[in-house]
Design a protein around this nucleic acid. Structure first.
Lengths: 361, 361
DNA sequence: CCCATGTATGAAAGCGCTTTAACTTCCTCT
DNA sequence: AGAGGAAGTTAAAGCGCTTTCATACATGGG
């Protein structure tokens, strides 16, 4: 090589023109050999590839995207990356994207619509072809107009919009919805508790307006009804999600009443908080109170006791979002896909205490 | 607007030329008003901004990057996004990047060097200016040459390389190392056990060659020595990381011997597995065996019992990586930064059983 | 033997943007 | 009053690449 002992820190990138020159061909031929967009005789191709390797040529993705009018890039937007559930979804998206040679960027909003909008805007600038918004929301007017805006904006940039676990405000909107069947999942896990003999079951961690949670609450109520309980038997605590919320709400609930023998948590993190609150109150799980969660995060089996919960294959959700959106683009837009879930039985459920409960009515 | 009722799905993006025309200025002026790279009178600026808004103009990041010769983008590469520790680091990087208006892309390698190389290559093409490789490795010849290659390649693309929790094979290599002081952390947590009276402590989850784990093992041995124990008192189980590994190794260890009263786990996930194995063996923590972890993942306090562990502020590690690399680029390259850690005391440590241990010698 | 066909290659246009260099006003200073 | 600037603006160059269009040369059927 000619620059053996010369300045190594040369900042200028090698361009395709230099590769072409070294290979003794035109830029056009070099481009074709390198990108494979057009057949090139094996001998020529080899010469070009050789030159590229010698020069440590690195294609400029921007130039490519600029002329190519886009690029293979997907974006996944979550509340926070450190939430186990979101992390799994993101991993699924990343994996499925990587499988097709796509780049995947993840954005964290911290639940702030402002940052969500900024990120979507950024993705438009970056030319992402797939934007996946993950996580339940409260479906208010602001949300509806936000999503309508995204859908229109992304569509006009030629990008596809996927909503995971959140609703499309309008069936005409060109967004694909992929989510778990929350109602069925909650119905099943509540049924599990009912089958064990529980009759006083509280739902901890509702978030009125949040469609995902609302569906779970609906499933919970449906299960109660199926087992012949009156609507009044339902007890729903609107404390929202997260370990801290579960801890606080459960602590308060226990102070207020003990007329229940089981709790259905809005998700596993709420269950984690509830478990701690119950232990702090000197009660045992499942001896005194049975607890079930939702999502089956990786550490759910390390809770105390191991948590019976609903497994929502989060990584599969991420993969499905990409797969469906890319499979049949035209047909997919505007459709809704429901993914199934199933119960994972561990140690946090037992029949209610035989003495009739903590504080018999 | 003129295209009120017309075809909405127009795929062509609005360009700066159209904005300029509508605002009645040249492209140059429009560009300056939009990007703010050059002062423009307020009145003109307002006119351009107005036009851009009316047209729903979205800048093309590729064109920008192409002419600008790069872009504000950082990449963070981890083994898997779903590991709580890596997720936190990634979140830190994302947050710090977002604070400066940088884009952050995350890549998952699954621990495969091949994929790591592909990803680094991809980042070169994408023009990332900062590549952060996270996570301990075994420092073999392959690793050394890989990193040397990255460093050289990225440097020649004008990008900075940061190694988090893994070594720079050669002090001359233009890579910045940012990591926790593993030795000190392990020494402290082992000291905690020793102070509680334990003398037979096993280290579970070593991974010979992995520099991060090796440092922890070294810290563990150092603590033992400090308390006057002979080198032979050390017992290190090389089972690697992860919950499954911890579960399996602990199960086997318990079958083989019970001549220990405490275990230092390689990380919290190993601790999780160990906890389960001990419970499965009918033993109590901390009554029979004390257990400590490493990293203080968010759910460590929900373990059974809540885990005493070493807090390694993972998000701060991510933030620090970005901050240091960007703060003083020239000076930073080639330097090494150690972040401090501290013990978080919970419920998984007690004095050793007074009956002299499980199986007194 | 010549034209249609196919294959290999190259010159040049142009993707959307930023920036340089040049030009025009309009002041201000001497 | 005219030189010297400052301020505002623009035309045009060019970032690195892909692709169209054109060209050049073989090949083979009529």
């Amino acid at each position: 090589m000619e620059n053996d002992m010369t300045d190594t820190g040369s900042r200028r990138r090698v361009t395709i023109r230099e590769v072409a020159e070294r290979a003794g061909v035109s830029m056009a031929t070099a481009s074709r050999a390198l990108s494979g967009n057009h057949p090139v005789p094996a001998a020529t191709r080899a010469r070009v590839l050789r030159a590229a390797r010698d020069l440590d040529y690195v294609a400029n993705a921007h130039a490519r995207a600029l002329v190519g009018g886009g690029r293979k890039m997907a974006a996944v937007v979550v509340r926070q990356v450190t939430s186990p559930f979101y992390a799994q979804v993101a991993e699924g998206v990343e994996a499925e994207a990587a499988d097709r040679g796509w780049l995947c960027v993840v954005g964290a909003t911290g639940g702030d619509p402002q940052r969500e909008m900024e990120f979507v805007q950024l993705m438009r600038e970056e030319g992402a072809r797939l934007v996946i918004l993950v996580g339940g929301v409260v479906e208010d007017e602001a949300y509806r107009s936000r999503v309508a805006h995204y859908a229109q904006a992304l569509d006009s940039s030629g990008a596809r919009l996927v909503l995971c676990g959140r609703p499309a405000p309008d069936p005409d909107i060109p967004a694909l919805v992929v989510e778990f069947d929350n109602e069925a999942g909650a119905r099943a896990i509540t049924g599990h508790l009912l089958s064990a003999g529980h009759r006083r079951i509280v739902f901890l961690g509702a978030l009125p307006g949040n469609t995902a949670l609302d569906a779970r609450v609906a499933g919970y109520r449906a299960a109660l009804a199926e087992h012949g309980l009156p609507p009044a038997a339902a007890r729903v605590v609107d404390c929202g999600l997260g370990r801290a919320a579960g801890l606080r709400a459960m602590t308060e609930l226990l102070k207020e009443t003990r007329e229940f023998t089981a709790v259905v948590a809005g998700d596993d993190m709420v269950a984690a908080g509830a478990l701690r609150a119950i232990a702090d109150a000197g009660l045992g799980v499942p001896a005194d109170i049975s607890v079930v969660g939702y999502n089956d995060i990786p550490l759910a089996e390390d809770f105390n006791p191991p948590l019976t919960t609903v497994r929502t294959p989060a990584e599969e959700l991420g993969r499905a979002a990409v797969r469906i959106a890319l499979r049949d683009p035209e047909h997919a837009a505007g459709s809704r896909h429901l993914l199934g879930t199933h119960i994972v039985v561990r140690k946090s459920v037992a029949p209610p205490p035989t003495d009739g409960g903590l504080t018999p009515v």
